[in-house]
Amino acid sequence: MYKIFLADNSSSGHHAAYLNSILELDNTENVSSLMKFSEKKYSFDYYLSRLIFLKKIKSNVNKLQSSINKGLVHLLYIDNLYTIPFANLSLDNVKVIGTLHHYPQNNLKMKLLKVFSKKIDLIIVHSSYIMKQLNKNGIYNVEVIHYPSFYNYDSLPSASNLRKELKISTEQTVFSLLGGTRYDKGLDIFLNSFQYIPNEYKEKILVNIVGKEETFDKNYIKEMSLKYNINIKSYFNFVTDNEFMSNVIVSDYMVVPYRNFFTGNSGPMTEAVVNSIPVIGPNYGNIGYLIKEYNLGYTFESENSYSLSQIIMEAVDKKVTIESNYKNKLTVKHFLNSYQDIYHNLM
């Protein structure tokens, strides 16, 4: 008998959905140790907190090893672990794999990941683009499993009924930006693009901003709304799953104007694709690759507000929808089958 030991240091947000989904597979067990890692880079606590986590995971596995012939530890989020060059991951009769959600942003981190990759059997990434970036840097023990949508939209009303509930006119083109207003997500790039958009277009546009206030707060957004005459509907409090899904459904376009240093997948983009809603994103990096590779919508010159303004006007004129085979890769069933195959092959 073999066992798959699933480990993470966090249960917040998508961490919980990811873990709980994989726990549906046979022979899986949660050996996570919830703890907050130090973020002060190159400090003693930075390394110590991560080493303590790995030690706890190894201890949790050792306690359960007597009941199995062989096992596999799956580190569900190695983005905050591979920067420890002296981590010891070895366990008797146990293989180790890890999921990487963002590829390294600089050469030092890439070198550290390469060292880390030699200590484990396999790295899982969520895009072929990320796999290619790792391959270019000499990391070859990599496989792709696409990050799925964990939401179930079946119980929601239609988009037209939701628009009535939310008092959104059918004449308006809704551009949504969902999730926390972090700097890397480029909300300011999007809002600045309205300085180049004529009023006759602005009258047709509703900007839908829903998420936690972070870098760009409600005062900044209000200021930009007045400065550039932008019609904005915003909500910054906690949203339920149904409220989040509703804001996806009412969108004509999902806007993901990430800055160049963002190197992962976008949750709102995934939700748009599974609902056949076109995406507007930069022509750079993983986001740009996915949009172009799978024909998911429009791309603009990365970090260029003027380029984005031209795409916004084109999107208002055309009001397109998408039907991409990529959405078939984004189901939980496909996600679980892919992990099951990897576990089976390694065991």
Rank of each mutant, 00 (worst) to 15 (best):
Ser155Arg: 01
Ser149Arg: 04
Leu191Gln: 00
Ile168Phe: 11
Asp252Leu: 07
Lys333Gln: 14
Tyr103Gln: 13
Ser67Ile: 01
Ile68Val: 13
Ile124Gln: 03
Asp188Gln: 08
Tyr258Leu: 02
Leu187Ala: 07
Ser67Glu: 14
Asn152Phe: 06
Asn69Tyr: 09
Gln340Asn: 14
Thr299Met: 10
Leu122Met: 14
Gly264Lys: 04
Leu166Ala: 09
Lys114Asp: 04
Ile342Gly: 03
Glu293Arg: 15
Ser21Arg: 05
Gly288Met: 11
Leu296Glu: 06
Lys329Asn: 15
Ile84Tyr: 10
Ser67Trp: 06
Ser149His: 06
Leu112Ala: 05
Lys109Cys: 09
Tyr103Pro: 14
Leu330Arg: 05
Glu243Gly: 00
Leu187Asn: 07
Ile342Phe: 02
Val279Lys: 02
Met269His: 06
Asn237Ser: 09
His15Arg: 00
Phe44Pro: 01
Leu308Gln: 14
Gln195His: 12
Met254His: 04
Glu143Gly: 06
Leu48Phe: 15
Gly98Ala: 02
Leu177Gly: 02
Ile124Phe: 05
Ala159Lys: 15
Leu89Gln: 03
Asp217Ala: 11
Tyr228Arg: 02
Thr170Trp: 08
Thr83Leu: 12
Leu178Lys: 02
Asp317Met: 13
Ser43His: 07
Leu72Trp: 09
Thr181Lys: 00
Lys63Ser: 15
Asn107Lys: 14
Val256Lys: 00
Val125Met: 00
Asn345Ser: 14
Phe150Lys: 12
Thr181Asn: 01
Lys292Pro: 08
Lys222Thr: 12
Leu166Gln: 08
Ile22Ala: 02
Lys70Gln: 11
Asp317Pro: 09
Glu39Cys: 08
Ser169Pro: 14
Asn283Gln: 13
His101Val: 15
Asp217Ile: 12
Val279Leu: 02
Ala159Leu: 07
Asn265Ile: 15
Ser302Met: 01
Phe335Asn: 13
Ser10Gln: 08
Lys233Ser: 13
Ser193Trp: 01
Lys333Asp: 15
Ser276Gln: 07
Val61Tyr: 11
Lys3Gly: 03
Ile342Trp: 03
Ser246Leu: 04
Phe5Asn: 00
Ser11Gly: 12
Asn27His: 13
Ser59Asn: 11
Asp184Pro: 00
Gly98Tyr: 02
Thr215Tyr: 10
His14Trp: 09
Gly180Phe: 02
Lys95Ile: 05
Leu166Asn: 12
Ala17Gly: 13
Met269Ala: 15
Glu165Asp: 15
Asn93Leu: 11
His126Met: 09
Ser307Phe: 14
Ala159Met: 11
Leu19Val: 09
Glu293Pro: 12
Asn60Asp: 13
Leu113Met: 03
Ser38Gln: 02
Thr331His: 11
Tyr289Thr: 01
Val239Asp: 03
Ile97Ser: 04
Ser251Leu: 11
Leu34Ala: 07
Val142Gly: 01
Met110Trp: 00
Gly281Trp: 03
Lys204Tyr: 12
Asn260Gly: 08
Gly264Phe: 00
Leu19Ile: 10
Pro268Leu: 01
Gly180Ala: 10
Ser127Cys: 03
Val239Leu: 09
Ser155Thr: 09
Gly297Leu: 08
Ala272Ile: 12
Thr270Gln: 15
Lys319Gly: 07
Met1Ser: 14
Arg182Val: 07
